[in-house]
Amino acid sequence: MLWDVDLDVPTGTLVGIVGPNGAGKSTLIKAILQLVPVLAGEIRVFGQPYEKQRSRIGYVPQRESVDWDFPVNALDVVTMGLYGKIGWFRPVRARHRQKALQALDRVGLAELATRQISQLSGGQQQRVFLARALVQEADLYLMDEPFAAVDAATESAIVQILKDLRKQGKTALVVHHDLQTVAEYFDYVILINGRVVAHGPTPTTFSPENLHKTYGGKLSLLEEVAQQLREKR
């Protein structure tokens, strides 16, 4: 359950969604995608209702949300990103696979295209999901914890791709849990704990006071982050 969400996100920025566990970070993303019911209020994407803009949204779900034992290979999963564009009943063609292979190459996994997905490492699985969203060629990307439990190589690969996306004028909303890297990765930040505590450009919004309001001063880690923030200034 998430209350009092009233926010506008500027286009062409990388947006971090930050908050403690159970704060409703994933729920916010799922609400935009209409995967969970919105009880009151409305969500507009590029000024229009979601249904009209569906093809402009790319989605990276949490890695644990699927069964990685499923009998498909990496290329199959990436190709799934094109299913919406291909449409009902039409088969997948060679040019679709070609496109998917390019996306896999972009995340550095082209040589693992035919590997069964359970034989990929956690970070590689995350990159497959990212490639699947890239192949959607969306303008808005919604990513649910893409940095959760990934190796350093994957983390830097994802960051590089996020920066590329920003260069192309695209927007990405990223659920993030690592406070240490927020200031480094994102231009804009949304702090959530059951409701939106604060939102705005990272330099002004990601402040010790707002973090205290979000986390209630429970984390000892908070002090560390606040210290680092002060040092940076």
Partner: peptide
């Protein structure tokens, strides 16, 4: 056979299937 692609996506990743409009 006709719906092979859609059912494959449904079984693998339900929320993504919804996300791309099925």
């Amino acid at each position: 056979l006709l719906m092979y692609k859609e059912l494959k996506l449904l079984c693998f990743d339900e929320s993504f299937a919804k996300g791309v409009g099925f």
